[in-house]
Design a protein around this nucleic acid. Sequence first.
DNA 1: GTATATGTTTATGTATACATTAATGTATGA
DNA 2: TCATACATTAATGTATACATAAACATATAC
Lengths: 220, 220
Amino acid sequence: MGAMSNVERAVSALRQMIFAGELPPGSDHLESELAEQLGMSRTPVREAALMLQAQGLVEMRPRRGIRISPVSATDMAEIYDILTELESLAAARAAQAQYSKSDLATLATAIRDMDAALAADDLRAWAEADDRFHRELVRLGRNARLSMVVSVMRDQVRRARATTLFMRPKPKQSNEDHRIVYQAIARGDVQTAHDTHHAHRQAARDMLVALLEKHQFHGL
Amino acid sequence: MGAMSNVERAVSALRQMIFAGELPPGSDHLESELAEQLGMSRTPVREAALMLQAQGLVEMRPRRGIRISPVSATDMAEIYDILTELESLAAARAAQAQYSKSDLATLATAIRDMDAALAADDLRAWAEADDRFHRELVRLGRNARLSMVVSVMRDQVRRARATTLFMRPKPKQSNEDHRIVYQAIARGDVQTAHDTHHAHRQAARDMLVALLEKHQFHGL
DNA sequence: GTATATGTTTATGTATACATTAATGTATGA
DNA sequence: TCATACATTAATGTATACATAAACATATAC
């Protein structure tokens, strides 16, 4: 029925704990501890940790336990550089694909939700809709591997957001950019879709890196 | 001494077998079979398979065994699209970094080796030097995550090369491109480095995809 | 002959036991 | 006091045993 293996349970539980900050960046955890917490044996925990390690969320170090990977300003710069290139390509491909208005409904909804969240000053809701927009954008680019890579990178960004979301300036220009990208895709303007999104992500990168550097989240 | 775990041994053995074609694309293998072949228990084989799965080399399907991932023309298009963007970024960053001639020695050597291999009509040697060039280029871009992603993608390309290397036209333009990229990096010409490499990879993509499509390597 | 239900097989998912080995603590000597 | 060698500890790496559940085959009904 609820055909979900313990490994899957462990993966999503650990992810949740990491994103919630319950397992703080840089902290170490024994396989046996985590296994007990999750009510299962070490085996599925180990396998889950291997998967999360492949996604850069944890590092398994011999005899030191499972370390929750820290995210430094440098890391964030690396990640955003990758996101910038790959998402821009996805935007270009989406524009090339000649999608109909109804194909783009999810994008449009996300944009409206961001507007609403911003008007209501609800940053959490904004971040959620922003995620939704970017995920859908990449999906429209129709490259399964690219989607995978981007989603792994976005996971790592998400972890820093607890820190950055309430320190960064209100994302006003951001919504403007999204709208331009959306319209470019709708009318098949490949260049504009690509370049606008590229600039959008690059701006976000510079802002976030500066923020993290300023607040000395270097090794955290 | 030779501190190498069975998991590591399993990973490199399986990689070798996959690249050598000993485990053909699309074939299925039981954990227990592989374990016996490698002279170890299922546990390290399973862990190795999980890692290779994260890199897209195999797929673990419940009760069907470990499947060696096939690489179709569509897959190749996806992979090259990613390689194109990320390697071009690396080229741009390398040009930005103002490397000295001696920093670029490895690149230069790779180019010379490609020339020599081409003159001697030794395609294997050419492919090896070509790999070396691209690996070094990415390294010079100084983005650890990007290097990782690119290396995973390149592994998948390598698997198709057994098929494509001797069917494709002689890589003559290729060497020309490499030289232009090298010179652009050496003089700090970011735009040329980026654009030339971008076009270089895109041309390779189109050629390879056409080749694979023609020879109906769709599901293989 | 087809389709459904039932039984059998068997590969995997998980738990557990054990071997290995790195890290820590202790003692000895200078 | 400090350094080195040794013993101890304990976490991981690996093997193994077993429960589970999917795939296959068989049989039965229509």
